[in-house]
């Protein structure tokens, strides 16, 4: 099952304007793992994702998906295996109805229309919005749009799921549904977010990025409870384990 592995070796990347976004990033994510990448705005999280998807190419270093090097040649194959959900669903839903949007990927891979249909319906069912298939994207609520954009990626049956801020701008119930959805997937998952509670609930492992470098990489329980580390990286403890603002009772273990 080594093809669900993501490996990144010594990545360096600078934007055309000279801004050095990533400095020597390396990590390996194994099959079935779910990993949260956290850091302040501009730390380099999104750049990492774009390098993983081959939207950008590194100045030096390499990306391996499974055991395949990511190059221009291997892109189509890799993109079939790795699905990315964008931060803004509007960027991802560009057709005139949800069905066609979810079918966009499978059709591009020239599947016959029957297979496309079963995949589309399967994906829509998985995210729980089958009844919305004929709606136009602008008719959907924020949460429904998010579900639709996840379905768009699932219909390609990827091995690895990458999500950029999957819960941004969602109401509490919609957020809860997305978390439930994420936990129900057995894919290898990479999630970037500022919603540390989401990371706490969905990821076993966390990578902290600061100024284009990895400052910490370890088990979620250790990193997200380390308030000193989080503070030094411009983050704070997840709300669910912060001291209660009303009665000030502490939740972090004071062993």
């Amino acid at each position: 099952m080594s093809h669900h592995k993501v490996e990144v070796r010594n990545l360096h990347f600078s934007y055309p304007d000279g801004h050095e976004a990533l400095k020597d990033i390396s990590f390996t994510i194994v099959h079935g793992e779910s990993v949260g990448i956290i850091g302040v705005n501009g730390a380099g999280k999104s750049t990492i994702l774009m390098l993983l998807m081959g939207i950008l190419f590194p100045d030096s270093g390499e990306v391996l998906i499974g055991d395949v090097h990511l190059t221009k040649k291997t892109l189509p194959m890799i993109r079939q295996r790795v699905g990315m959900v964008f931060q803004n669903p509007d960027d991802q839903l560009f057709m005139t109805n949800i069905y066609d949007d979810v079918a966009f990927g499978p059709r591009n891979y020239k599947l016959d229309e029957k297979e496309v249909e079963s995949r589309v319906m399967g994906a829509l069912e998985l995210v729980g919005i089958s009844e919305l298939k004929n709606r136009a994207p602008f008719r959907l609520s924020g949460g429904e749009k998010r579900a639709a954009s996840i379905a768009c990626v699932l219909s390609m049956q990827p091995d690895i799921l990458i999500m950029d801020e999957p819960t941004s701008a969602l109401d509490p119930k919609a957020r809860r549904r997305v978390i439930g959805l994420l936990n129900s997937f057995t894919h290898t998952k990479i999630i970037t977010s500022h919603d540390l509670d989401l990371v706490l609930e969905t990821c076993q492992r966390v990578i902290v990025v600061k100024n284009g470098k990895i400052t910490a990489d370890g088990a979620t329980n250790e990193i997200l409870t380390n308030s000193e580390l989080l503070d030094s990286c411009g983050l704070e403890l997840p709300l669910s384990i912060q001291d209660c603002p009303i009665c000030s009772s502490s939740k972090t273990s004071k062993k």
Binding site: M53, D91, F94, F104, G105, N108, M156
Partner: peptide, 16 residues
Amino acid sequence: RVYQAMLLRGFSMEYN
């Protein structure tokens, strides 16, 4: 961003 989203889902100038 839209174009990236299309590319990631295998778009190659064919509209199906």
